[in-house]
Write a protein that binds this DNA or RNA. Structure first.
Length: 610
RNA sequence: GGUCCCGUAGCUCAGCUGGAUAGAGCACCUGCCUUCUAAGCUGGCGGUCGUUGGUUCGAAUCCAACCGGGAUCACCA
């Protein structure tokens, strides 16, 4: 469990002060430390309004008394001032310089191992069509949350469950047999998932034509939709699949194989991976036994037609069917069985996080409740990482209307845009073509990932194509640029002051070998940067707790923004005072390392130059 | 209709365990490249925090109602 080291010093001191001054105990939960607003002097502010009832004194009096006591008893409290009920505390420079030294030595964004194993499920596509923008939000979110949990000390198992069976893939198979003429990814040059998606669309087109024909011949619409010959073929295909028909199974395996090749190429470019992949063709048989067990235990009940239900009305939900009357399974049946299987396979698992869109909020509420009712203690560790839909400026994405944004095309576009912008700046003349390709890939992907991750996951968001390829302002490339400038600065420092470069991780040694942490006086810009750096671990902790990368993304932006202000106004290499220069190099180094690590948590790479 | 989520600057978003004069980016206007990378930095413009009421010393933040937008409530996945 992470605790802010500064608050760890101040909190007990504050409680002791209050006890001594006013003879009352302060509830630690009632105490809120906040960063002092920039218009006042101070680093940490304590709001004493909530304590007034206990202190029996006015706000100024209370704050002043506490301030004096803290100043007298806590080393790091340099001085304080009181504005109304706000006690603004100035923390000693030595505290910040000590922190910076540690940050340089250890890195601040890797917490000690908790030993907890956490499973994160994300992506989980169907195999009948390529990945799109909606998947991109899911995948970047799941990947980033996995990284954040790892940085916070957890052992993370990344999984996805691929929906590789069902009517959807049969549709692609039927259409491919009818219209494909044996087309393959090799013969067509099409990516496997794109090829299969093409036949899914072809199915839909042919089916619609048949429906229109039958309606023209006098059939009712819903009847025509069900009775269209091609639809009957797809259903027949599904039956054969379930009967293990060898021909159907072979075709199914072949086409799914194409899709996986395509998905893997997309995942590779996204920079994400999985430790284990579940397939619904394996898991769809799971759960029936568990439902029957629940029935025996009296957790579920059976209706006259033989279907099995759970009554969740006492919990404010509805009744839910878990198994059909004919004994065949439903989505819920499989999900129950799959969850149980996972905890059997990974007995050490503490938590299981499902990254799934918020249209399934109800489904997961019911699923988790059912597993609790079945008596599984681990059900407390289940969590639905629910995220909002991605809208386009033109409205909702609809696959039927062809308004989906393809993930591969999207990535290609942002990378091309990065190339255009990069070539224009003509800063990269000495880059080889290969180096440029890598750089533009990094920049484009940073733009895309940051754009999708900076927004609170649970909120619906708008995808503006123009803004997503922006390289300026509140963007991933802006942060990368700051990092590249820091790296450049440090490279030059290494050339000009070779001795210094070996000491960058330590602030303590000046050119003369004298310790400087005790006496170093921070200027305004240094102080601002170092405080934001100091907050970063708490932000990581919050991101890990809330499973929300956006807080980390936003704070990292604030940090590098502050650093840019420092960089612009405070000389580093040009500083003649060796102590100051070393300190500023160490500060730059620490910001660079932390930035790199924070971006890593977002799945974003950093270039050494750009 | 029941349940859940959302509504903050022209646009996109922070802030929401109640606290000081509500922030950032984009856009628009302005200044800064003979000095460490100008993919940067400065300054300016821009707000009845959906509405109304309540709780409180104090509300964008909590509560209620209403308005507007969305999701969900299948023997689909």
């Amino acid at each position: 469990m992470f605790q802010d080291p500064l608050q760890a010093q101040l909190l007990p001191a504050l409680q002791a002060a209050f006890q001594e001054l006013f003879q009352h105990a302060l509830d630690p939960k009632a105490i809120a430390f906040q960063p002092t607003r920039p218009e006042f002097e101070g680093d940490v502010t304590i709001n004493v309004f909530p304590f007034l009832k206990l202190s029996g004194k006015g706000p100024e009096q209370t704050a002043t008394a506490i301030g004096k006591h803290l100043h007298a008893h806590v080393d790091v409290v340099e001085r304080f001032n009181v504005v109304k009920g706000f006690l603004n505390i100035v923390i000693a420079d030595a505290y910040w310089t000590d922190f910076l030294r540690e940050a340089g030595e250890k890195g601040i964004l890797q917490f000690p191992s908790s030993g907890d194993q956490v499973m994160v499920e994300y992506s989980s596509p169907n195999t009948n069509k390529p990945l799109h923008l909606g998947h991109a939000r899911n995948i970047f979110l799941g990947d980033s949350v996995s990284r954040i949990l790892q940085a916070a000390g957890n052992d993370v198992v990344r999984v996805q469950i691929v929906n590789d069976r069902g009517i959807h893939i049969c549709k692609s198979m039927v259409a491919w047999l009818k219209f494909g003429n044996g087309e393959t990814p090799e013969s067509s040059g099409l990516k496997g998932d794109k090829l299969v998606g093409k036949y899914y669309v072809a199915f839909d087109t042919a089916w619609k034509a048949e429906v229109a024909e039958q309606i023209a011949a006098g059939m009712k619409e819903d009847e025509a939709e069900k009775q269209a010959p091609i639809m009957l073929e797809a259903q027949e295909m599904l039956r054969k699949w379930e009967a293990n028909d060898p021909e159907v199974r072979t075709l199914w395996a072949k086409m799914n194989g194409w899709v996986y090749d395509g998905f893997n190429a997309t995942y590779a470019r996204m920079g994400v991976g999985f430790d284990k992949i579940y397939y619904e063709s394996d898991t769809y048989v799971l759960g029936k036994k568990d439902v029957m067990d629940g029935l025996e235990k009296g957790v579920f009940y059976k209706k006259e037609d033989g279907s099995v239900w759970v009554d969740n009305t006492p919990d404010g939900l509805d009744e839910k069917v878990l198994m059909r009357g004919d004994g065949t399974s439903l989505y819920m049946t499989q999900d129950i069985g799959t969850a149980i299987k996972r905890f059997e396979e990974f007995p050490g698992l503490k938590r299981l996080i499902y990254t799934v869109g918020n249209e399934q909020d109800y489904h997961f509420k019911v699923l988790f409740l059912i597993l609790k009712k079945l008596g599984y203690a681990w059900a407390e560790g289940l969590y639905h990482l629910s995220y909002g839909m991605v809208d386009l400026p033109t409205g909702k994405m609809k696959s039927r209307e062809g308004t989906v944004v393809d993930a591969d095309e999207l990535m290609e576009e942002v990378v091309q845009e990065a190339r255009l912008a990069g070539e224009e700046l003509s800063k990269l003349d000495d880059f080889s073509e290969d180096e440029k390709t890598i750089l533009f890939e990094q920049i484009g992907m940073a733009a895309l990932k940051y754009y999708l991750l900076k927004v609170d996951p649970k909120k619906r968001m708008l995808f503006d194509p123009k803004a997503s390829i922006d390289l300026q302002g509140h963007t991933g490339p802006f942060i990368q640029y700051t990092y590249a400038r820091i790296r450049s600065l440090l490279r030059k420092a290494g050339e000009k002051f070779p001795v210094v470069s070996s000491q960058l991780s330590g602030v303590q040694a000046s050119a003369a070998g004298q310790p400087t942490t005790d006496s170093y006086q921070l200027n305004q810009e240094e102080r601002t940067v170092i405080k934001l750096l100091h907050q970063l671990p708490a932000v990581l902790n919050e991101a890990a707790t809330k499973l929300d990368p956006s807080s980390l993304a936003n704070h990292t932006f604030e940090l590098v923004k502050a650093y840019n202000g420092f960089y612009q106004t405070v000389p580093v290499l040009k500083e003649e005072d060796g102590t100051k220069r070393n300190f500023r190099l160490a500060l730059s180094n620490a910001v660079g390392s932390a930035t790199k690590r924070a971006l890593w948590c977002l799945g974003i790479e950093v270039p050494e130059r750009m």
